[in-house]
Design a protein around this nucleic acid. Structure first.
Lengths: 152, 152
DNA sequence: AACGAACGGGACTAAATTGGTTCTATATCA
DNA sequence: TGATATAGAACCAATTTAGTCCCGTTCGTT
């Protein structure tokens, strides 16, 4: 459930990769090789991330991309938002007000809440966190271990 | 981002609807009218929920569906799992081990963590919670208000 | 016993989404 | 000036999703 698209996955891998050397300007071709996709595909993702102001682009020869902010200040939620469109687990909560069965729409308020939890959890997880090979739960407030009711 | 499929959304609406009268046997046709979809569509969802043991089916004339357990003991995570397939935000974390770019797969461990947060949050939210018009945050441990870093 | 209501399961079609490529224009370094 | 590299849009193919239909089975009702 809650599967992200491939492009979004690639996007997080790219951001993580770049976070390891935040100063370096990386070209689309270089990143494509690094993460194992074709250049046009990487390029498409990079353009999207740049348009969302998560990356800064450098045009011209020896150009490429650069993290727009320190990796610790870029949350995974932002990366997902950039690549996956507007937030919202259901259509209703994403684009409020155009719901066919208004009678059942008490639900929406609850979905909004669930969305919010997820968003907060992902807001607390930064690109810098992801770049660390061993991930520090302390950095991510929402990631407390809560063992109850965890089905297979 | 993290958009659920329509069917899953319908599924939660159905479960919530049924939670309001847990004793009553509801036919597919009746539920279809209640939530505003065509009968075959409702039927498809109900079959899936029954196969996942979230609903109990009653065959024959005057048959229908019934919650398999008290609504407070059915989590939203289960409903989503039933309708959306195996858990996992990326392909890698859903079906471990078949990742093209193994080098970048440090990421996977982190994604797993994120998945877990989301899952725990949704595990704590039950069908009974959703059925209440005003939703009690106290019932849902993971739903603490945490105002930091909440962009547009 | 026969009829009809209702579920079980699978196959199928159409529509929407996604993944990926290509092309043209623009910017910049050497 | 030429090579390199991004910007942006259009486009195609493949997958996924939504929704429908059909046939078999179960079981009240008459």
């Amino acid at each position: 459930m809650l599967r992200l698209s491939k492009l979004t996955d690639y996007g997080t891998v790219i951001m993580t990769h770049m976070a390891r050397e935040p100063e370096r300007v990386c070209s689309a071709a270089e990143l494509a090789v690094a993460i194992g996709v074709a250049t046009p595909t990487a390029s498409k993702i990079l353009k999207t991330l740049a348009r969302a102001s998560l990356l800064q682009s450098v045009r011209g020869a020896r150009g490429g991309y650069l993290l727009a902010r320190p990796p610790a200040e870029i949350s995974i939620a932002e990366v997902i938002d950039a690549l996956e469109g507007p937030f919202g687990m259901t259509e209703c909560s994403a684009v409020a007000g155009l719901c066919a069965q208004e009678g059942s729409c008490l639900l929406r308020a609850n979905w909004q809440r669930v969305n919010q939890v997820i968003r907060l959890a992902l807001n607390d997880l930064t690109v810098a966190d992801m770049a660390q090979p061993v991930f520090q739960p302390a950095n991510v407030g929402a990631l407390r271990a809560r063992p109850e009711r965890m089905p297979g």
